[in-house]
Every structure is written in C-alpha cells, then in structure tokens.
Computed example of a mutant assay.
Amino acid sequence: MSVAVLVPWRPDGGPRQAVWACVRARWEAIHPGWEIVTGACPDGPWSKGAAVADALQQTTADVLIVADADVWSVGTPFAVEEIRTGRARWAMPHQLVRRLTPEATQAVLAGAAMSGQPTQETHPGTPGGGLVVLHRDVLEGVPLDPAFTGWGQEDQAWALALETLAGPMWRGGSDLFHLWHPPAARRSRAVGSAESLARYRRYQAASGQTAQMRALVAEFCPTPLEGSPMTYRYRNANTGDEVEYRHRNARLEMLPNWSRIAAPQPVKTRSEPEKTEPKTPAPPAQDPPSSSPPQEPSARDSKGVWVEYATSRAQDSDEVAEIAALTKAELIDRYGTTP
C-alpha cells in the first residue's frame, strides 16, 4: 500500500517555517518512499480540518499519516504497519509528548538528535493529536471537523468520532517530540475558544452512540462511516484458536504462542461508487529548503540517541524493528563511521 504524510500547513514567515523545514527533511531522509503533502485552508481563521481535507485531495495513497508540522516520532513505521496489515483502522505511534525547549529546538534545527534533548514538559499524548495514522477509507468517512477554527479541541473531537465509528485505536509506545515555536492564541492552556469548547461538548455527548455521531459528522461529510467497530483478534499458534476483544489484550500480546491477526474486514459501509480513475495530484507546495538529517552521534551519546540516528538510516520497517533490539555497542558498530 502507498503511504502519504498529510501536513496541515500555513506559512508564517517565522520560527514555524524553520521547524517545518527540519521536520520535512527528516520525512524525506528517513522515509523516501512516502509522499509528503501539505494542505492549506482558505484565508481567514485557521482550520486544521480544512487543511487536512485539502491535503487528502492531493493524493491517492492508501495509508495516510496526519501529522502536525512540528512533531516527529520514530515509532511511526510501526503504526503504519498496523494499518497496512489491517490489524487496526487508526493508530498513534506514541504514548508521551516531549516538548523541547527553545534551545533544544535550535540544536535539532542545526542537526542534533532529538532524543536526550532538554524539554519544557513531558505529558501523555492527546488521542487524535500530533500524529495519527489511518486507512484512506477511515479518513474519508471520519474526517477532521473543519468547523473548529483557531487552536484547540479539534483533535479530541476527532478521536471521539474515530473511536465511535472506526473502532479502537492501536497505540505504540514511542515518544513524540514536539519542536518549540511561539504558541497559538488561545483562551487558556487547555481551551481554544468558547465556540470550539461548545462544539467539542457535542462530540462528548455523541461519544459511543453511532447514530448520533454519524449525524454530527454528516454535517460536514456526505458519506460518514456507518460504524462497524474493529476488534482485536488473536490466534493461538499451537491450537489454531482465535479470540476477539474490544481492546488490546496485553497478556496475550506477551505470550509467544499468541499473535495478533487482521480482523475480518467490515461490510462496506459507504455508498459512493467505486473510483475508476485515480485523482490527479495537485502540484506540491513550495516549502523552505530542507535541513540536513541527524548527524552521527559520538560514542559518549546515549543509546537513545544512537537508536534515533540508526532509524534515520534504516531502509525499511523490518530494519527499524531490528534496531530496537541492538545494544549501544552493536549500534555503533553497525551504523557508526567515525573511528
């Protein structure tokens, strides 16, 4: 399946410009086979939902990564694999968000690794925020609500809609690094505006209620998913038995004789005709020049720094998975070039 990174983006001529140039360089260097698409929204108040919808129209990729322009996670390939194999319909690679300091961000912009950099704060990642991986059908049937404008609440609302209509989220254990830039205008640390909060309350009321959530999504999406939540399915290699759960079963995932398999595909839930011809991608937006990929660490750097550097040189997801099991000495031996 083809993969595209959809980035909602509006140039500001300030620090965000340099941050996106750095992040884009990493996407290009580490995942050269993935398409990168920037999406814009009309002039006026910023709408992440409108920008993501614009990016979606520019690609025909099957697996979509909706990523903010200021974040990075080495666990993204694992989330992509969950979607590609059908084991999940939407996924996030990270548990924690590590917000770098301005000084640490400048070091990263100059080529330093993100791991080990000083942070302003570390907190659990908000479901639906930062970086989300999902199949094209899911994004087309449960898009981000464009009615949220400015900063705040659109990610949380999206997560409630996805959970209700597309089923449980797969979540990896990696970190999400957030590069510093001046914060957007907002009502408070947690609330963007009174209007966004009121709209989010509607999603909270519809959470878990398929018909009510479909009616809410139908306000801006002509073909919302009907709602056939996906289950987590496991097979016993010794007996052939298969079981299903609404959520991940941590015990079975630790046992060597049990493995996760793709759940049966849900019945087609959207009535639009099959596409007969691919869409013609729009010309890519002109973005600032890319910065260089991470520089090789020294032997004094931590294993985490070496893991990030090795991941930046990996050729595919299998190599990325192998990197996590290597010792620091093995990482230096395999990926280091400096005597």
Rank of each mutant, 00 (worst) to 15 (best):
Q57Y: 14
P77I: 01
A88V: 03
S115L: 02
S115R: 00
D54V: 02
I83N: 01
E103V: 11
T122S: 12
A69Y: 08
M114T: 00
L96T: 09
P102A: 10
A61P: 03
A110H: 05
L100H: 04
A104Q: 00
D68Y: 02
L64G: 09
V80R: 07
A69V: 05
P45S: 15
A112C: 05
P45F: 14
V108L: 00
V52Y: 09
L100A: 09
Q120L: 15
A55W: 05
R84A: 14
R99D: 10
P45K: 13
A61Y: 01
A67K: 10
A112S: 02
D43V: 07
A53T: 06
G39L: 03
W90P: 06
L109E: 01
D68C: 07
P102T: 09
V74G: 00
S47P: 08
K48S: 14
D43C: 04
T101I: 01
M114K: 02
K48I: 08
A50H: 12
A104L: 08
Q95V: 07
G44V: 08
G116E: 06
T105A: 07
D43G: 12
W72I: 08
E82L: 09
G86F: 05
A50W: 10
P42F: 13
D43W: 04
G111H: 03
R98M: 12
Q117V: 01
D54K: 04
L96A: 11
T85F: 14
F78C: 06
T59N: 12
P93Y: 02
G116S: 11
Q57K: 14
C41L: 09
D68E: 14
T60F: 03
G44C: 13
P102C: 10
W46N: 09
A51T: 02
D68S: 11
A113F: 03
V80H: 07
L64H: 05
A107N: 05
C41E: 04
V97W: 01
G111Q: 01
S47T: 09
R99I: 01
Q95S: 01
E121A: 13
A53P: 00
A88M: 09
M114C: 00
E103H: 08
G49S: 02
E103I: 13
G116T: 01
A88N: 08
A55F: 02
V63I: 15
W72K: 00
G111S: 02
P93E: 11
A51P: 05
H94M: 12
V80I: 13
L96P: 04
R87N: 08
A104G: 05
M92L: 12
G116L: 11
A40Q: 05
T122M: 03
L100G: 07
G49L: 11
Q58A: 15
D70A: 08
E121N: 13
R89E: 15
L96K: 06
R89T: 11
T76A: 15
G44I: 08
M114L: 14
D62F: 00
T101V: 04
V80A: 13
A61S: 12
G116F: 06
H94T: 10
D43A: 12
A113P: 01
V52S: 07
G44T: 05
A55E: 10
Q120R: 15
C41T: 00
A69G: 10
E81C: 07
L56S: 03
S115T: 02
V66Q: 15
V63L: 14
T38K: 05
A67F: 07
T38C: 04
A104P: 02
T101F: 09
